[in-house]
Amino acid sequence: MTKQQANWSPYDNNGGSCVAIAGADYCVIAADTRMSSGYNILTREYSKICKLADKAVMASSGFQADVNALQKQLAAKHLTYQHQHNKQMSCPAMAQLLSNTLYYKRFFPYYAFNVLGGLDSEGKGCVFTYDAVGSYERVGYSSQGSGSTLIMPFLDNQLKSPSPLLLPAQDAVTPLSESEAVDLVKTVFASATERDIYTGDKLEIVVLNAGGIHREYMELRKD
């Protein structure tokens, strides 16, 4: 019998877009809830957002099975951390842990594109953005996933973050208020959904601030 399929691949891209925006005293993390494979929509309600600690929330797109394994790994590590230190991990600490966890699989990577958002020890918003093998950077806002090519330049245009080349280093948090940031996130997803077939169905927005964690949803185009 002759071979009928293309060569087997351990990876798939299940699509989806993630955005995080840091403000002076809040952080907004958002992602759509569509999960696709090729031209199929597998489900319209799959959350890409994972609460890793009280003040650290991760949004991930890429290969769902790897993302799932990564989330479980981080949850297990965070449980150990809580037993050893009797406290929740801070967002910058979680950021380093995520980088190490990704790099640990450098030669058989997790095909996961993450943004980590949260509040640092001073209660200031922070966003960390990653590649699949663990390179990471602290920024004021970021986007990852299938719609990132549409979203990122729009955020650059709207938020005009100070150049990272400036000395002394400028604070990267955005000047927007919390509600302005949430509105901006809604706009960028509505726009990305127009052109990116892997983004749509529903938008899940998580807002972190001094008051705690708050979640809201917005419907997106389903085509």
């Binding site: 494979s37 489900t43 309600e45 290969f63 769902q64 099975a65």
Partner: peptide, 9 residues
Amino acid sequence: SMIGVNFED
């Protein structure tokens, strides 16, 4: 799926 992609619906 074959490669571990999983969901409910």
